[in-house]
């Protein structure tokens, strides 16, 4: 077992009823690297992320995170993964701080860490407002804080920069950007930005891996076919 690989997929397949959402996806991602997952809506990007987050189980093939096979050893890797998906996973009637304290307790993280991440995303002033009173951009910043609260070793980022203005993007860059040094899986509707950050690209089309390789090897035709 190669210890430096954070993600190892071998023939990963996942169905939804009769439909096959992911078909025999195989790849390896080394520690500290970034994987960009490209594809249209419904290509299987979010499903892949949810499998890596241990929220969905694979139907066939093997998935290893940090060398541990999923779903059997899922409990070992839970807590080492941070998910930033479409849903903020925050309670609307609680304040930002209360939400983060709740997550900190679930993850057995020191309460001081909450203040730290609130500062990092620039939300310390609005931290005591209920989440439902915040703008989408602020909620997204809180979501970033929530995702990195427990210092995950693998970040799963589903369009992390949606709803963020440029200033906020700059703010969260050290937390979830390349500068964080954390192994990342990134999806984006905007391929050029994702390609610039990635060491490895997975092109998904109809659940199939159309392309697995470095960004440089991805030619215009293949890239075009991913979004056609």
């Amino acid at each position: 077992m190669d210890d430096t690989n954070v993600i190892e997929l071998e023939g990963l397949t996942r169905h939804f009823g009769e439909r096959t959402v992911l078909r025999e996806v195989s790849l390896r991602l080394a520690r500290g690297q970034t994987l960009a997952v490209l594809g249209r809506n419904g290509a299987g990007k979010s499903t892949l992320l949810r499998i890596l987050a241990t929220l969905l189980r694979p139907h066939a093939g093997t998935v290893r995170l940090f060398g541990e096979p999923l779903p059997r050893e899922g409990w070992k890797v839970r807590g080492r993964v941070g998910l930033l998906g479409h849903e903020p996973l925050l309670y609307r009637d609680l304040t930002g701080r209360e939400n983060l304290v709740y997550h900190a307790r679930l993850h057995r993280v020191q309460p001081e860490r909450v203040q730290e991440v609130l500062l990092a995303v620039g939300m310390q002033e609005r931290a005591d407002d209920p989440v439902r009173a915040l703008s989408r951009g602020m909620v997204q910043r809180l979501t970033v804080a929530r995702a990195v609260l427990h210092r995950p070793e693998l970040l799963l980022l589903d369009e992390p920069r949606s709803n963020l203005d440029p200033a906020a993007e700059e703010l969260v860059e050290p937390l979830i950007g390349r500068a964080s040094g954390v192994t990342r899986v990134l999806t984006s509707h905007d391929p050029s930005a994702a390609l610039a950050e990635a060491a490895l690209v997975l092109g998904l089309s109809g659940g199939r891996a159309v392309y697995v390789g470095p960004p440089a090897g991805l030619d215009e035709a293949t890239l075009g076919s991913l979004y056609r």
Binding site: T54, L55, R78, G79, V81, L90, H103
Partner: peptide, 17 residues
Amino acid sequence: VAEREQGGFDAFLLAPV
């Protein structure tokens, strides 16, 4: 309802508990 609609289930399942 709050767990379902506001992602409480996912948040809980992501935690090592």
